[in-house]
Design a protein around this nucleic acid. Structure first.
Length: 728
DNA sequence: GTCAAACGCTTTTTT
DNA sequence: AGCGTTTGAC
């Protein structure tokens, strides 16, 4: 274990062996950030003899957590067992289950995902006769979410106008209804953990003492609520070790707040700051392009990315006629490379929006190449899968009204709106949840059965089903419960009888059953928790040797030999929703920066002159403004599209031989090989400063900087390629 | 209460 | 263009 540090560069060693105490590691892309974190954990355990269970490590995704666990185990074996390792939500879930007695929900609470949240909000709107078009559930929920991320409860919701008043009211109702459902949403997991710590200092201190060392990955993307949890947990030992890169902050829309770094510095005095700058991933060309893009952002510490690796190939810019051709060109390129011996898993295609994957998928299928698609809710978003999970959730937590409403008439069993309304009213009368009321109906001679009339029988029948499943959940394994639900509801024939896509659906359920089998011993609670918190990304088989398609967001933290970023058009990147505000635009730029810096060897950027708009028709595009920030001399263009003759702006579309105007911003340095154009002593003239004498000239970052002494103006430092200097 | 047709809206990114 | 939701008929 003593050789642990020898495998690291000096900067990394410094970071890994940093003395205990508040520590900030600012790590550029490809600087070995993950490596530092894993080695740090290994170092704590094997050198400082910190017991694994006194270490908390927080990552941004489940995948990252899993990976980190594997790597630490690789380093130190079984000593790594017992680390608290996971996303904020997973960690909070663990704490909340333990301390459920102190919460407004009981220990069988379920986690509502976005769909559940919307379903619940729609119910609330309906109950309150509010127009869904005026009060869009998604927009209200996003306002609520933003508040929660800043730890602002309904009582403190800022009201500026009538609408705010309504939102505030809905916020109150929403929280009430969640509690009645014995449920919480993603944000609540963090909020409740904060409340737990605030209301019960003893509980807080228990955890604060337990976690001697806390490590946080992707710190730049934490929100205030998350930061507050960290601050609470680190109050005893103050060993908070955070790793991040402001240039890779891409979750502002989710409440991520880069100011957490300042908060950290002021909350934890004397925090040590360690910089990791050297890049071990990309070629210098790729890094230069990345810097060209990111340096346009203000309010940041300018960093110089450097590598000892080679300059590498120029990056390619491909312009296609339309988005289909764009996809075709990319896939073709990959196919050719694979044929000539490249490994399929070396390739990644990245895009701004999930919708863009579709054309690419088609192209891959046409070429008969298999691919990996990250995210895009391809599996867990499926109706049949969600239905089955709703059944299971109802079994686990009958108070879950959203799931109850979803499955009570599924497959249709004659329980319509009216019957559901009756049940709901009955529940309200008794101050119980609908689910509890339903289960209560199985009691012999139930007093309300006569009230419900004929529909009562149907309810009772379903109530018996649910009761039986609840017994099955107690006494049998998960898969037996799963099978019984399908059998009892005849769900298979419900989805399968129709077309051939019915078979697909059934296969999806079989796939879900395979997942269920993995939780055979751990049980329903763990299964449901995983379903709620584990994203699709974690399900993609790593073994599959195929090109990967993923959003730029999903690409964070990954690296690939060859990267294609498609859709470098205005409205897409930067996205149409993010072009107004400067902060939004800066984030779009960071997104591209993240994408570029994923590439090890080769980078290809593509765009299309026309693409299918969200509204079906084809529309002309405008090149992304970010393209002009790429140093031209590092870009090789492949223009496949014919310039179109029309009276549109595309008359200005460049031909194959011409440098397109959107790239013309960065001039090629005049003398790339070590020679400067200007020499000391030369007489020059400048349009504003007039006559001057060159004092010195040197090459910096491929650009020539000249110091000139101007009569009446003094000494000026000028960039040779930008300043219009003439040699006299 | 169920089924089919018409309608209208959508696409930013994710724990 | 395609999907999900609402509307209207049986």
């Amino acid at each position: 274990m003593n050789d642990l540090l020898e495998r690291l560069n000096p900067q990394q060693q410094l970071a890994v062996a940093a003395p205990p105490g508040p520590t900030i590691v600012l790590a550029g892309p490809g600087s070995g950030k993950t490596r530092v974190l894993t080695y740090r954990i290994a170092y704590l355990i094997s050198v400082l003899n910190v017991p694994a269970y006194n270490i908390l490590a927080v990552t941004f995704t489940n995948k990252a957590a899993k990976q980190m666990g594997e790597r630490v185990t690789q380093l130190i074996g079984p000593h790594a067992e017992g680390i608290w390792l996971g996303t904020f939500h997973a960690i909070c879930g663990r704490i909340l289950r333990r301390e459920a007695d102190l919460l407004p929900v009981n220990k069988n609470f379920v986690i509502f995902d976005t769909d559940d949240q919307e379903a619940l909000m729609k119910q609330i709107l309906r109950d309150n006769n509010l127009d869904e078009k005026l009060y869009k559930p998604a927009s209200i929920l996003s306002a609520i979410s933003n508040s929660k991320n800043d730890l602002i409860g309904p009582e403190n919701y800022a009201v500026k106008d009538f609408r705010d008043e309504q939102v505030k009211r809905l916020y109150v109702l929403y929280q009430q209804r969640l509690a009645q459902n014995n449920a919480m949403d993603f944000d609540d997991m963090l909020v409740y953990t904060n409340q737990l710590f605030d209301n019960y200092p003893i509980v807080r201190d228990t955890y604060a003492h337990k976690f001697e060392h806390i490590l946080v990955d992707e710190f730049q993307d934490t929100n205030f609520s998350q930061y507050s949890i960290l601050r609470n947990l680190a109050r005893a030992h103050k060993n908070l070790y955070v790793v991040g890169d402001e240039d890779q902050s891409i979750y502002r829309w989710r409440g991520a707040d880069y100011r957490n770094l300042d908060r950290f510095k002021s909350d934890f005095k004397n925090a040590e700051v360690i910089l990791l700058e050297q890049n071990y991933r990309s070629t210098q060309t790729i890094l230069d392009c990345a810097m060209g893009v990111i340096d346009q952002n203000s309010n940041r510490t300018r960093k110089k990315l450097f590598t000892k690796a080679q300059t590498g190939d120029k990056i390619r810019l491909v312009v296609a006629e339309d988005d289909r051709e764009e996809a075709y060109l990319v896939v073709n390129d990959i196919r050719d490379a694979i044929r000539s011996g490249r490994n399929p898993s070396e390739f990644a295609i990245m895009y701004r929006t999930n919708a863009q994957s579709r054309v690419l998928e088609e192209a891959f299928r046409r070429e008969g190449i298999s691919y990996r698609l990250v995210g895009a809710q391809r599996f867990y978003g499926r109706k049949e899968v969600r239905d089955m999970i709703a059944f299971l959730r109802l079994v686990y937590n009958p108070m879950d009204e959203v799931s109850l409403r979803r499955v009570i008439n599924l497959p249709p069993r004659g329980i319509g709106d009216k019957t559901i309304q009756n049940l709901s009213e009955l529940a309200q009368k008794n101050g119980l949840s609908m689910g509890e009321t339903l289960l209560d109906l199985t009691r012999p001679n139930h007093p309300y059965l006569s009230e419900l009339g004929r529909s009562g029988d149907k309810l009772v029948r379903f109530a018996h089903l649910l009761t039986n499943w609840r017994h099955a959940a107690q006494e049998n394994t998960l898969s037996i419960l799963f099978d019984r639900i399908i059998a009892d509801t005849d769900y298979q024939s419900f989805i399968q009888d129709k077309s051939e896509e019915g078979l697909d659906r059934w296969e999806n359920l079989l796939e879900l059953r395979a997942v269920v089998m993995e939780y055979e011993t751990r049980g329903l609670q763990d299964f449901l928790e995983a379903m709620a918190l584990v994203a699709d990304q974690d399900t993609l088989p790593d073994e599959l040797d195929a090109p990967t398609m993923l959003t730029l967001h999903a690409a964070k933290g990954l690296e690939f030999e060859r990267v294609y970023i498609v859709g470098l058009d205005e409205m897409l990147l930067p996205h149409s929703h993010s072009r107004e505000e400067e902060e939004d635009l800066a984030e779009e730029r960071r997104l591209l920066y993240v994408g570029i810096t994923r590439a090890r060897k080769k980078l290809t950027l593509t765009r299309a002159l026309r693409r299918r708009s969200p509204y079906g028709t084809y529309e002309d595009t405008v090149p992304s403004r970010f393209l002009k920030d790429l140093p031209t001399y590092l870009v090789q263009q492949d223009i496949y599209a014919q310039p179109r003759r029309s009276n549109s702006s595309w008359d200005r579309e460049p031909s194959r031989w011409e440098t397109p105007s959107w790239l013309r911003n960065t001039p090629m340095p005049m003398d790339k090989p070590a020679n400067t154009r200007f020499k000391s002593g030369m007489q020059v003239s400048h349009p504003t400063y007039g006559h001057g004498v060159v004092k010195s000239s040197k090459l910096e970052q491929g650009d020539e900087t000249v110091e000139v002494y101007f009569e009446g103006h003094g000494l000026k430092a000028l960039i040779a390629s930008l300043a219009k200097l003439d040699i006299l």
